[in-house]
Write a protein that binds this DNA or RNA. Structure first.
Length: 284
DNA sequence: GTAACACCCTGATAGC
DNA sequence: TGCTATCAGGGTGTTA
């Protein structure tokens, strides 16, 4: 389940492996993997073949590869996507969707994705920042992230705090896992109304979001199973440091109360009933 | 304009 | 054993 730390780990790995290399061939093995590329696979392949990758960039959970043509290859891992470097003679993965080979005959780049929520697309003229992902906010690790603008925008919204943390146009890179972890650290329930939080409370929460993401980046990202591995095929191990996510019934690391699980937006939220009491006012 | 929800997908797991 | 139901969840499109 790649969130910002996992995607950043992949970005760093890919940057070392593909920067400066020229694409020889592109194979699309599954149409859904390029469903966001509306002109279709022939166009996708034509604009990539012979192009040199000049960098690997990221915004939130999106990656993009600026090309020497001024275009950019955009990638999103979705829930189960992987971008793997593999020797040409390595056996095809069961869920191999797209294969890139390079003119130097070095390792191939493979996009592998079991659940096909992820995908690649090509952005013409998008080397600097693709239009397709311009609506995604900067992430809190970005030096240009504007803390006070975030605080003001969040407090101006009429929604719940966890919804706001998952809104990628407000703050990017945070998914279900790190939202729960940051809320646990801030001792806030995810249903707290954003318009009733004080500025200092939002600043504290933002600091916790940064801490959680930063620690996870150092640890190489969270991984619960083999669905996520980094570019070298190695799983991260941040899951050992989780305080809330996935710990239903286990004692809170702060007060010992069993962690509760609640349904939220068709998924699960984990929190401590004592440290993170539900707000008294119920919104509708 | 804003908020909330359905939907896409496959494999693991639970229940019968 | 083998079937069906449920769950995981990011981002987009649709609805309210």
């Amino acid at each position: 389940m790649p969130e910002l730390p996992e995607v950043e780990t992949v970005r760093q790995g890919l940057a070392k492996w593909v920067t400066g290399r020229t694409i020889r061939t592109v194979e699309v093995h599954h149409p859904r993997a390029i469903r966001r590329h509306l002109p279709g696979d022939a166009h996708f392949i034509a604009l990539l073949t012979g192009r040199t990758i000049v960098d690997v960039a990221r915004r939130g959970k999106y990656l993009w590869f600026p090309l020497d043509s001024g275009d950019a290859l955009i990638g999103h891992l979705g829930m189960s996507g992987q971008l793997l470097m593999q020797p040409a003679d390595a056996e095809d993965e069961k869920h191999l969707r797209i294969r890139f080979t390079f003119t130097d005959d070095g390792p191939e780049l493979r996009f592998v994705d079991q659940r096909t929520f992820g995908g690649l697309s090509l952005s013409e003229g998008g080397a600097e920042l693709p239009d397709e992902i311009a609506h995604i906010a900067r992430d809190p690790m970005d030096p240009l992230f504007d803390d006070e603008a975030f605080v003001a925008r969040l407090r101006g919204k009429h929604t719940e705090i966890k919804r706001a943390l998952l809104d990628q146009t407000l703050i990017s890179g945070v998914g279900n896992i790190y939202a729960d972890e940051a809320l646990w650290r801030a001792q806030l329930h995810g249903a707290r109304p954003t318009d009733q939080l004080t500025r200092p409370a939002v600043r504290r929460l933002l600091a916790h979001v940064r801490d959680v993401l930063g620690e996870a980046i150092v640890a190489g990202g969270t991984s619960f199973d083999e669905l996520y591995v980094n570019v070298n095929g190695e799983s991260g191990y941040f899951d050992r440091a989780l305080n809330a996510y996935g710990r239903e019934g286990e004692p809170c690391h702060r007060c010992g109360t069993p962690i509760r699980r609640e349904q939220f937006m068709n998924r699960s939220s984990f929190s401590c009933p004592r440290c993170q009491p539900r707000p008294r006012t119920i919104r509708h």
